[in-house]
């Protein structure tokens, strides 16, 4: 299955965030919020780092 950077990042972030949410919190609402926050941070930080490296010669 050939895959490019961004879909691989999305898949990775989604699966890891789900596990983090399930393991870290106790109620379903807290888990969903934590997983969503973790997913957003994974993707946001990766994209930000990608742009920073774009400008580094």
């Amino acid at each position: 299955m050939p895959i490019t950077h961004f879909p691989a990042l999305l898949l990775f972030a989604a699966l890891v965030s789900t596990v983090f949410g399930v393991i870290s919190k106790d109620t379903p609402r807290e888990r969903a919020l934590y997983a969503a926050k973790s997913f957003a941070l994974f993707v946001g930080i990766a994209v930000a780092l990608g742009w920073i490296m774009y400008f580094v010669p």
Binding site: M1, I3, L15, V16, T18, V19, V22, I23
Partner: peptide, 21 residues
């Protein structure tokens, strides 16, 4: 419930790893 979610996520991640060779 937790068991099913953990199993699905971890096995899916492993299978995706296999699919990506």
């Amino acid at each position: 419930g937790r068991a099913i979610v953990l199993f699905a996520c971890i096995i899916l991640m492993f299978l995706l790893g296999l699919a990506m060779k």
